[in-house]
Amino acid sequence: MSGTLLIAPEWLGRSGLWQIDAKGKRKAVDAEDIGLSEELGDRLEAWMDAFDAIYDEDDPTASDFANQVERMAWEAEGHALAHAIADALGSGWTVQQDFTSWRGKGLP
Results as ranks from 00 to 15, higher is better:
G106D: 06
D30L: 08
D33V: 02
R71E: 11
A86F: 06
E57N: 14
Q97G: 11
Q68I: 10
S37R: 14
A46D: 10
T100Q: 08
D58Q: 10
D49R: 15
G24Q: 07
F65K: 11
L40V: 13
D64F: 14
E39H: 09
A31M: 08
G41E: 00
L5S: 11
D98Q: 15
R14P: 00
S63V: 02
T61M: 07
G24L: 01
A80F: 07
G106Y: 08
W18R: 15
T4M: 00
H83A: 14
L6N: 03
S91H: 08
I20V: 09
D98A: 14
A76D: 15
M1R: 13
H79K: 09
L81A: 03
N67H: 12
L12T: 05
L17E: 05
V95T: 11
D56F: 04
P60I: 00
E57I: 08
M1I: 12
V69R: 09
K23Y: 07
V69H: 10
A22V: 01
K27R: 14
D52M: 08
D52T: 13
G16Q: 03
W93A: 01
R43Q: 12
A80D: 09
Q68L: 13
S63F: 00
P108D: 09
A86R: 05
A46K: 13
Q97K: 06
D87H: 15
W93V: 02
D56N: 13
L89S: 05
A66S: 11
V95K: 06
G90N: 02
W93K: 07
Y55V: 09
A88D: 01
K105T: 06
M48C: 13
K105F: 08
G106A: 14
G41F: 00
H79E: 15
A62V: 07
L17P: 02
I20S: 06
W11P: 02
A28R: 09
A28P: 01
L89A: 12
D64C: 11
Q96F: 05
W18S: 14
M72Q: 15
M72I: 14
E57R: 04
D58P: 02
W11D: 04
D98V: 15
A84H: 02
A73W: 05
L40A: 14
G24W: 03
W102E: 03
S2G: 00
N67A: 08
D98R: 12
G16Y: 03
L107V: 05
A82F: 01
V29E: 05
E57D: 07
T4P: 00
D42L: 11
V69M: 01
L107T: 03
L107Q: 10
G92F: 02
D64Y: 09
K25M: 03
E32C: 12
T94I: 01
A84Y: 00
I7S: 00
Y55H: 15
A84D: 02
A80L: 08
E39F: 11
G35E: 11
A22N: 01
E77I: 10
G41L: 04
P108E: 06
H83Q: 13
L17W: 09
A76K: 15
L36K: 14
N67T: 14
L12G: 01
D56T: 14
Q96W: 04
D58C: 05
